[in-house]
């Protein structure tokens, strides 16, 4: 355990309820600066809910979430984003009737005062994603699923956040695009970006991540080094329900 520095993000025993239904039971996890942490699990395991409570999209009924020394549980999403968080939402959620350019620009909304930096980052995104550069003026709704995911990644990159939260980036994408998405994430990791990643695609997520947590029925059932978990039969069980 590293004791020298407190974690960038720590979730401390949170419960989340949707009406009468409890989705999370005392979930705890932490992400250190510069680390890639993945939350894995099958459908309805609570992995997305965990991410949503960090982003302020759902409010925990119990427990604390601390970002950079500040408690953020129950804060509005905009407040959390203002503290230096970027989000790649589940299902991409690009603005369909806005151009690729405008979508990217909106990613930089919290630092809209820094025009020159934004222009530079925008150029950088276009070199990383040549496909987006070709489609700058096109409406985002007309892009393919994979291109939209690239756009969502680029949009989050423009936030220049100290923590990027990514929700199921491989969902509904063909293997070629899954590879392309993860290529980008590997580069971000190499550049030192801290990432909290929620993913159903366990193998690839465990390859990217430093550490991972496995959720089942709203409980953390496994946690540890990504490499160890990748070899664990229990991970397979969590997905395939083998007896």
């Amino acid at each position: 355990m590293n004791t020298a520095k407190p974690a960038l993000l720590s979730i401390d025993a949170i419960d989340v309820h949707y009406g009468a239904v409890q989705a999370l039971y005392g979930v705890s996890l932490h992400v250190n600066a510069g680390e890639v942490v993945s939350v894995l699990g099958g459908n309805a395991s609570g992995k997305s809910t965990t991410l949503k409570s960090v982003l302020g999209l759902v409010g925990p009924t119990q427990g604390r979430i601390v970002l950079d020394g500040r408690e953020i549980q129950g804060r509005a999403p905009a407040d959390v984003i203002d503290l230096g968080v970027a989000s790649v939402p589940e299902g991409r959620r690009v603005f369909p009737d806005m151009s690729v350019d405008e979508n990217l620009l909106l990613g930089a909304y919290p630092r809209r005062k820094h025009k020159a930096d934004i222009a530079q980052d925008l150029a950088e995104v276009f070199t990383t994603f040549p496909r987006l550069a070709e489609r700058r003026k096109q409406l985002a709704g007309t892009l393919s699923g994979g291109e939209q995911q690239m756009l969502a990644l680029g949009r989050a990159w423009l936030r220049r956040g100290k923590l990027v939260c990514i929700d199921e980036p491989s969902m509904g994408l063909s293997p070629r695009f899954v590879d392309a998405v993860y290529d980008v994430l590997f580069r971000w990791k190499a550049a030192g970006q801290t990432i909290l990643l929620v993913e159903q695609n366990a193998r690839i997520a465990l390859e990217l991540a430093d550490r991972a947590y496995v959720l089942q029925y709203g409980h953390v059932v496994l946690e540890g080094n990504a490499a160890d978990l990748a070899a664990d039969a229990a991970v397979q069980k969590a997905y395939l329900g083998a007896a």
Binding site: L55, L57, A76, P77, A78, I81, D82, S87, P89, R93, V94, F95, P96, D97, M98, L106, G107, Y109, P110, R155, R159
Partner: peptide, 12 residues
């Protein structure tokens, strides 16, 4: 176009 997505970009 998408209120939740806007909120996740820091829009109040």
């Amino acid at each position: 176009q998408d209120r939740d997505a806007a909120a996740q970009l820091g829009v109040r």
